[in-house]
Design a protein around this nucleic acid. Structure first.
Lengths: 140, 140
DNA sequence: TTTAATACTTGCATTTTGCAAGTGCATAAG
DNA sequence: CTTATGCACTTGCAAAATGCAAGTATTAAA
C-alpha cells in the first residue's frame, strides 16, 4: 500500500515539498538522519517527540518511495536495517539550515547551538559546507 | 478555541516550524502572500490546490496567533479583511526560496520560472534581496 | 533452548480533514 | 426600503489520519 504515486494538487514547487513533508513527522526523520547521525528504526523511535511505530514505518517507506532515504540491511546484524539519506535527501541541507536559522531568530526557547545564528549569518557558505561534509550518505 | 498555545513536543528548531507549518496547507497561504500578492480570503480560496473554507479560516487564525500574518479591515470595503505578512512571516523568504530551489532541482514537473535556479545558484543574495523588496508587508 | 533485540503490524479510540451547505454582516442595485 | 450580491466565515457529517497499547516475525545472543 501507499507505493503508488498520489495525484498531486498542483505543479507549484512549494506544494511539491508539502506532498512529501506536509505533516508533523517526516522532517524530524530527515533531521535525525542529517544532524543526529541516526540510522535505525529504534534510534528514530528514541527522539524527544515520541513518534509511534506505525507512523514511523509509514514515513520511512514514503521517504524511500520518494528517493530521499535508502534502506539497506546491516552488515553485522541481519535483523536490523540501516537508513541513510540519498543525495536528493542530503540536498535538503540548505532548507534545514534556513529553517533552523528562522527558528533560532524567532523562538526564544529553541535549543539551537550557541553561536549558530551568528556563524550562519556571517559565513553561510562555510557553515553549509562544513555540515555537508559531515552528513552521512554511505551505504554499506 | 485554538487560541491557547499548545504544548510543544520538544525545543528543536526543526520541530518548532513543524508546530506551525506541519500540515499540507499553511505554507501555501504564506506562498500566496509572499509570491502571488494575495490578500483576501477569497483570493486564497482560488489557489490551484483548492483549500476548503473551514481549513482556510483555521489556518489564517493560527498564522495570526503565531505572529506570522496580520489581519486588518479593508479601508474601502469594511466587510472584507486584508491579510499581510508580518516581518516574522517575511523572514521565511530564504526558507521558501531554498524549498523552491530544491523542488526545481528534483521535480521535473515543477513550474518554477525559467532561469530561477541558475540565478539563485549564481547570485543567491541578489535574488533574495530583489524578492524581499517586493514582498508586501504594508498594513492599511 | 530460552531470551532478547529489531522492525514492524494490528486494533481501536480520538482527532483532523474534506466537502457541501448554511449563516451573518456590509455594501450595491432597483 | 427591499432585495440581491459579495465576503468571511460556521456547521454538520463522513472519511482519513493519528496516537496508543499490544502483538508478531525474524535474527542473534546466552
Amino acid at each position: 500500500m501507499l507505493r503508488n504515486s498520489k495525484a498531486c494538487r498542483s505543479n507549484c514547487p512549494i506544494n511539491f515539498v508539502l506532498e512529501t513533508f506536509g505533516d508533523k513527522w517526516t522532517l524530524l526523520i530527515v533531521r535525525d538522519l542529517m544532524f543526529h547521525n541516526k540510522r535505525t528504526f529504534l534510534e528514530f523511535m528514541e527522539s524527544d517527540e515520541k513518534i509511534s511505530s506505525n507512523i514511523l514505518t509509514e514515513r520511512l517507506r514514503r521517504l524511500e518511495d520518494h528517493g530521499i532515504v535508502e534502506k539497506n540491511t546491516s552488515p553485522n546484524n541481519r535483523s536490523s536495517f540501516i537508513y541513510t539519506l540519498t543525495s536528493k535527501g542530503a540536498d535538503l541541507l540548505p532548507v534545514m539550515l534556513e529553517v533552523t536559522a528562522w527558528s533560532a531568530k524567532h523562538d526564544s526557547s529553541t535549543n539551537t547551538p550557541d553561536g549558530f545564528l551568528d556563524a550562519f549569518n556571517s559565513d553561510r557558505d562555510g557553515v553549509i559546507s562544513s555540515f555537508r561534509s559531515v552528513i552521512n550518505t554511505d551505504r554499506k
